[in-house]
């Protein structure tokens, strides 16, 4: 028993140390730097200021934030609309190997996300497969401008983030107690009513988890707008990157990234609260 404890302590200690050195301390440093002033010759001047946070609250950066949130919201809604029926059919099917089907959802994602994004680019280009096929069957006369549009960015985000919606939904729908549905049916509820009042409320934790898992990364996946959107729109991820690498304004970059983290923490907190509330009420 003692031996075992020692092993536990060592493993936990290694991981804790790892997180402390490579996650916690850098974050604390970012937090501190965000209150410093930009320096001409160094990385920052040690002088307390709130200006970095103040300058974020300008119309320009609000527009950046708004654009990023707009893209993330559209993506999340689309992924939910596509992912929910998929997860539902998958989880409720009587197929013997349904967990195998769930694994099949993940397998394409073993390839690098960057490579898959370039693959979408190949499909959408002027002389790519989609345009060639449409032209050959006579639907269009001239190739469509599919690439480097907002639509292409949304397509890329939806495709990349779909499994993050399907998997949590699959997990909650799979665990759904069939007796609730049967009881509702016995009491005369129509299929639509069962879905609206029984199935959806019971799968809310899955929906929220899926939405968070889609929404948060879609704020930060700056390479998809860069590759599929032609780098024409600045999103919040690009902004942070440019402040560090281009403008050499570490304090402001740190402040933006802290604000983003606060927004994310707030959303996770809301999720935790709602999940707790739903669990105590229903389950």
């Amino acid at each position: 028993m003692k031996e075992r404890n020692f092993f536990n302590v060592v493993t936990v200690a290694i991981i804790a140390l790892w997180l402390l050195i490579f996650a916690f301390i850098p974050n604390i440093m970012m937090f501190i730097i965000s209150f410093f002033e930009r320096s001409e010759t160094g990385f920052f001047d040690v002088a307390f200021t709130l200006n970095n946070y103040k300058s974020f609250f300008s119309s320009l950066y609000f527009q950046v934030l708004f654009n990023s949130f707009k893209m993330a919201t559209i993506t999340t809604v689309l992924v939910l609309v596509i992912g929910y029926p998929f997860a539902y059919i998958l989880a409720r099917s009587n197929f013997k190997y349904k967990s195998l089907l769930a694994i099949l959802v993940i397998i394409p994602y073993w390839t690098s996300a960057l490579i898959r994004t370039y693959a979408i680019k190949v499909l959408l280009t002027t002389n790519g497969i989609i345009n060639t096929v449409l032209e050959n069957i006579g639907i269009i006369d001239a190739p469509l401008n599919l690439l480097y549009t907002e639509g292409a960015v949304i397509l890329g985000l939806v495709y990349t983030l779909l499994p993050f919606m399907i998997l949590p939904l699959y997990a909650t729908i799979d665990k759904l107690d069939v007796r609730y549905i049967e009881a509702a049916g016995d009491l005369g509820a129509s299929r639509l009513k069962v879905f609206m009042y029984i199935i959806i409320p019971l799968t809310v934790p899955g929906i929220i988890a899926g939405c968070l898992l889609v929404f948060l990364p879609s704020l930060g996946l700056f390479y998809i707008p860069d590759i599929l959107g032609g780098a024409k729109n600045l999103l919040i991820g690009n902004l942070v990157k440019d402040q560090f690498l281009l403008a050499r304004n570490w304090p402001f970059g740190a402040a933006v990234s802290n604000l983003l983290m606060i927004i994310m923490a707030f959303m996770l907190f809301a999720y935790y609260k709602s999940a707790k509330k739903i669990n105590s009420k229903v389950l």
Partner: peptide, 18 residues
């Protein structure tokens, strides 16, 4: 361009945002 990079950066952000 020394400190003027900040001016460039601001207009660059504006160009790509507005």
């Amino acid at each position: 361009v020394f400190e003027s990079i900040i001016v460039y950066e601001k207009y660059w952000e504006q160009l790509k945002t507005v």
